[in-house]
Design a protein around this nucleic acid. Structure first.
Length: 856
RNA sequence: GGGCGGUUAGCUCAGUGGUAGAGCACCGGCUUUACACGCCGGCUGUCACAGGUUCGAAUCCUGUACCGCCCACCA
């Protein structure tokens, strides 16, 4: 049933109407009726729930939606789920403050726990399962708000296919995949120096690092060697107590004679060997460096390759630990003096210890000159506030280094849009320095599904982890009991303990295709959607999300997780900076959508090509809104005279359909190649020219001024053209196109068939190149007449007494066929057509303006 | 330090070998029975810079500058 053409079409109220209708009709519901090759599956990026959605999300999610809608109209059944990334640190922080709780994994689950009305101080300690329940409760509210915004924007997601990265499915998939890697020896645990955030008190992975420029200083410090002094330069003098060696380049003549000898550390009097290693740079500082355990990653390399001992001073919480000097581990030539100095450092943070050490060095004369301030890059956890330390701890790893070549090959097999984004992936894979550390000493995440036996001496037997039966997954080792044990044995000698850690958030996110696709729970679905067709995401998480997903799929399925990766750029402000959160919050996405309409905002978003950073530009949203209004009005005109209908006989009618058929071909090719921007641009230009020229040309004919057959030709062409143009616009402007479609068509335009060249050419009665030329030529003449009127400042309704057109013989012949249309559209009293060089000579009717002026 | 993008009108951007383009902004005109949430017209450029290839370069090559991003073991 159709609604008919309204008298005064308007955008107001139209979005609400269609939003409700799409939901009621299940317009975007995925049906698993089709075979794999008729399905288009999208591995949607799950936005982080603890933050607010910003304009960048609207931008990139629109790109995906345009592709989804296009593929759906192409006849593919689109698998378009939506995920929420609610697992991880940001959520933990919010929940702690919101409810006034802290997680204590040692506590048992309390099923009757409810949080107080107001957050108590000090916070209440709750068990991990209770804490996770609170996280789930809070994130559920955020997820509702996110879904509302996506519906408002008009994403054609199947909302019955949602998942959360902390949900049961995600936990089960993460744990199952982990256990399989463990069984195959691809996951392992090891006690080793690891990058460590002292505030969050957790290990972090290479992918989560970022460099920040911070102020520091070079300190020139003297070690002694017999009666001689050896100066080293360091930015971290507080680590002198953890110094285990000095190192210089093997070819450095200055230090060659010293290799194998021992130097004595200032303040602490520890004898440390002087060693050679090629990583030491003769040009830097004094050419000889102290190796500490551990100041940075290079220290770890030296320590490992030179087989040095460990003297760690920094504890997991960042404070200097108490140390007894004079022991085997902490040797000193003068233990009492060392102890006296060190006691002033114990308990301090690195920063405070540094200040104190500098004072002590200065007092004892070991500091040469004054510290020289510098700015240097220091590694931070991307969510952290203090520089990372390196702390030795037991962590779980997934093997990656063994697969680097294979992963590069996977990257080459993936179709990147734009293609150059592959380079970033390759740079990352080739730059990997170690396996992926996946354990985090946090709570709101997926637990490692393991327990460890407690030995008689009360220590854990980490080498013999107890695995659950996979049918029980997901499990929480802090509340579930391993097979063969009773709950009372938890923590007891001869009993068990649960693994206290959770997985890195990317260890779950890297499985989104498996989570959404029903891996190991719904084989029918999984076979229909995996590997998926598209991974859409932004370029900043190529090294994390994209890389880790490729890795997991490679390990688990020996395949790529998807065939295409469409990489969106960022939204930047006019100064080329990434839109900051503060700026993004000034104008919320919802406010923009309300002001400019979802179609208007989507139009702007579609102007950002794959990979291109795009300027935040409300002007473009206004242009999009105007386009939507224009579509309403032009459609009203095109549809207002449905009768009579009949064969397309007129040259320009066949011409417009022929041009449109070509446009359809070009757009289809571009959209298949993910160039949605170019396709929209072309459709828009065509549509505008269609309104300005073609509609004007055929207007009078449609009113019957050349008889019913002539009107019928125009009507048929108009309907066919409008129908195709609406469908070309539909992926971008889903609301306005659906509205217009409903005026005379049944069903949703979003389930309609993508326009086809063949249909348009059939309506035209055959491809008509000369019709295209006729329309062009007639449009040019109309333009010249308008120009003349504008130059003479005459109303457009002024008639032209005489228009003389000279053009090539062929074009003159074509204009002759279009004479009646042209005369009516241009208000031409007499039209002379003659062969010759192109020229249009316009003589307007007597100026009424003069008589009006003179009569005043 | 290595890599990847970018640099075209006041602004946002198309344009990959053949006479520099669009939209917005600006200026001017026009109530024209689809649209004043409109229509028509106009103005606007050392295509970052320097070389090279070519009959011909915004476009291809080399180098430089600047902007942005990614990566890196800067003691």
């Amino acid at each position: 049933m159709t609604q008919g053409v309204p008298d005064k079409p308007a955008l107001e109220g139209l979005e609400e109407k269609w939003r409700a209708r799409w939901e009621a009709d299940g317009t975007y519901r995925f049906s698993r009726s089709k075979p794999r090759d008729a399905i288009y599956a999208i591995d949607t990026p799950p936005p982080t729930v603890s933050g607010a959605l910003h304009i960048g999300h609207v931008f990139s999610f629109t790109h995906t939606d345009v592709i989804a809608r296009f593929q759906r109209m192409r006849g593919r059944e689109v698998f378009y789920p939506m995920g929420w990334d609610d697992n991880g640190l940001p959520t933990e922080r919010r929940v702690q403050n919101y409810y006034g709780v802290r997680c204590d994994p040692a506590l048992p689950y309390d099923p009757s726990f409810t949080p107080p009305e107001t957050p108590p101080k000090p916070p209440i300690s709750v068990s991990r399962p209770n804490f996770i329940e609170l996280c789930a409760r809070l994130t559920a509210e955020d997820e509702k708000a996110f879904e509302d915004l996506w519906r408002y924007l008009g994403l054609s997601v199947d909302w019955s296919l949602t998942y959360a990265t902390i949900g049961r499915t995600a936990q089960r998939v993460s744990q199952l995949s982990f256990l399989r890697l463990l069984d195959r020896g691809l996951a392992y645990q090891v006690e080793a120096p690891t990058l460590w955030d002292v505030d969050f008190r957790t290990a972090v992975a290479q992918a989560e690092l970022e460099d920040r420029e911070v102020a520091g200083a070079y300190h020139r410090v003297e070690f002694s060697l017999d009666s001689r002094k050896i100066a080293i330069e360091t930015t971290r003098p507080e680590l002198i107590p953890s110094c285990v060696a000095l190192v210089a380049h093997p070819d450095d003549e200055r230090y060659k004679p010293l290799f194998g000898q021992h130097a004595i550390t200032p303040l602490f009097g520890a004898r440390v060997p002087i060693r050679a290693h090629p990583l030491a740079e003769p040009d830097r500082g004094s050419g000889i460096a102290m190796i500490c355990t551990f100041g940075d990653i290079t220290d770890v390399t030296w320590w490992r390759e030179l087989s040095l001992p460990v003297r760690a001073v920094i504890q997991p919480n960042g404070a200097f630990k108490p140390v007894a000097w004079g022991s085997a581990e902490w040797p000193s030539d003068d233990p009492a003096r060392a102890q006296q100095f060190y006691d002033q450092l114990a308990g301090l943070s690195a920063q405070k210890a540094r200040a104190r050490v500098v004072e002590l060095l200065r007092e004892t004369g070991a500091l040469v000159g004054e510290p020289r301030p510098i700015t240097h890059a220091v590694k931070f956890y991307e969510k952290g506030d203090r520089p990372l330390e390196i702390v030795t701890s037991r962590q779980w790893f997934i093997k990656t280094m063994d697969f680097r070549e294979a992963l590069v090959e996977r990257g080459r097999a993936l179709k990147w849009h734009p293609a150059y984004m592959r380079t970033r992936y390759e740079n990352w894979v080739n730059g990997l320095t170690g396996d992926w550390c996946v354990s985090r000493q946090r709570f709101f995440g997926v637990a490692f599904p393991l327990w460890y036996p407690v030995k008689r001496d009360g220590t854990m037997d980490y080498a013999s982890p107890i695995k659950p039966d996979v049918s029980r997954l997901p499990i929480d080792p802090s509340s579930d009991v391993p097979p063969g044990y009773t709950a009372s044995q938890r923590g007891q000698s001869g009993g068990f303990v649960g693994d206290p850690d959770v997985m890195d958030t990317w260890a779950t996110s890297s499985l989104t295709p498996q989570i959404a696709g029903g891996w190991e729970s719904d084989p029918d679905l999984f076979n229909r959607v995996f590997p998926m067709d598209l991974r859409p995401q932004a370029h900043d998480i190529i090294r994390t999300w994209l890389f880790s997903t490729v890795l997991r799929s490679h390990l688990e399925h020996d395949s790529l997780p998807w065939t295409n990766a469409a990489i969106s750029g960022f939204v930047v402000d006019p100064d080329r900076k990434k839109m900051s959160k503060s700026k993004g919050n000034v104008v919320t996405p919802k406010a923009l959508l309300v002001e400019h309409g979802s179609d208007g905002v989507r139009y702007w978003a579609a102007s950002g090509r794959p990979g291109m950073d795009t300027t935040f530009d409300p002007n473009q949203m206004k242009v999009g809104r105007r386009l939507a209004i224009k579509i309403l009005n032009a459609s009203k005109f095109a549809l207002s005279n449905a009768e009579p209908r009949g064969a397309v006989t007129h040259r320009v009618d066949r011409g417009v359909l022929t041009s449109l058929a070509r446009l359809v071909d070009e757009n289809t090719a571009d959209l298949e190649a993910y160039d949605y921007t170019r396709a929209l641009d072309r459709t828009e230009k065509f549509f505008w020219s269609f309104c300005d020229n073609y509609l004007e040309l055929v207007k009078s004919r449609r009113y019957g001024e050349q008889g019913p057959a002539a009107a019928a030709s125009a009507n048929t062409a108009l309907h066919a053209a409008l129908s195709s143009m609406l469908r070309l616009f539909a992926p971008y402007l889903p609301f306005v196109t659906e509205e217009v479609w409903s005026w005379w068509q049944s069903g949703s335009v979003h389930r309609a068939e993508w326009p086809s060249r063949a249909v348009l050419i059939a309506v035209a009665g055959g491809e008509d190149d000369r019709g295209v030329v006729a329309l062009e030529a007639a449009s040019l003449v109309l333009g010249e007449i308008r120009k003349k009127k504008s130059e003479e400042r005459r109303p457009l309704k002024t008639s032209a007494r005489l228009v003389k057109v000279t053009d090539t013989a062929d074009r003159v012949a074509l204009l002759e066929e279009t004479r009646a249309d042209l005369r009516a559209a241009g208000l031409i009293e007499r039209l002379d057509l003659a062969p010759g060089d192109f020229a249009v000579d316009v003589e307007l009717a007597q100026a009424e303006a003069l008589s009006r002026e003179s009569s005043q």
